[in-house]
Amino acid sequence: MKRSLIPIVLLVVLALVPQFSVDIPYVFNGSIDTPGTLQLLALCLLFGGVAMTYDLLFGFTGLLSFGHALYFAAGVYVTDVAITRWHWSFVAAIAFTALVGVLLPLALGAVSLRVGGIAFAMVTLAFAQAGSILVFKNPHKWTGGEEGLGADYTKLPQGLVGIFNTKHLYWVALGFAAAVFAIVQWAVHSSPGHVWQAIRENELRVQVLGLRPYAYKLMVFVLASFLATAGGVVYLLLLGGATPEVTSANFTLTLLVMVVIGGTGTRWGALVGGVLYTWANERLGDASSSHAVSSLPSVLRTPLQQPLFVLGVLFILVVFFVPGGIARFGRVRRLREVFQR
């Protein structure tokens, strides 16, 4: 099969998922066309997409940002506040969010990209922390602080509200993941995309060639952040509200974990990592209350009840023993095919 056909076939297969009533024991808790499973699948696809936006920075350009959560959270909160608190129409809210999704990373990226390496990581972290503080501070009672803010569902498109419409939300999430995949593929193969990867390898050499790395880095920063903001809007639709956890530094760290587990700077790595991480996080939570785990001695049971513990340890093991992440397995297989020919 031609390589370019794989994503299209995959997209078609995934789009048909809600039409089939298939039970996959252990993997999903219930048939794949049930709202619960579709919701989980939608979250997996959403975070697969968001992980790809992070990979654009970290994997393809070598920018270690610890503030990506800010732009995702902007998508969640700006849209939510606009429709719920300011009573704007959904379309107006989306338009405004899109504007914020460009201007915010443009302004903050312009400042934080003045420094490189570890300092950049810390500055992005600090800006994201400012966003988090703002959300918790609940100015004018807009964000709902710790409680979060449920979206005014009367303002949302009616086809995307309610449990019966879960499959529509699934399609939205699938569309988002597919769009991000296509844009990332197009972008990294465009001529600025080649410069990004050259910056990752050796920024000095890019400078020697007479190009300004700063401009290219700002470009990729704004693109990745904008796509993350779009992901935030999808998240709002999926969850029907905003919770302050999406603003936290830990949220960015989980994106980093997803990308590294999947494999950085590859075609499929971030998507696979994001999907698997989200699935594991959810299912490990279920598994901890299952009979198999509750019958374990408490030394084992207690840590296993925390998905984040399991995933954190798994992440360390991947860094140590599977450099290159899951995507490396794919590459090994292709290599073998070459030899067999």
Binding site: L64, N250, L253, T254, L256, V257, V260, T302, P303, Q305, Q306, P307, L308, F309, L311, G312, V313, F315, I316, V319, F320, P323
Partner: peptide
């Protein structure tokens, strides 16, 4: 980079473990 990543994993795992216990 790997060293930073490992400390990130450790930070997540330790706070989760403390919560678990």
């Amino acid at each position: 980079i790997e060293q930073v990543l490992v400390t990130v994993g450790l930070a997540l795992a330790v706070s989760a473990l403390v919560v678990a216990i």
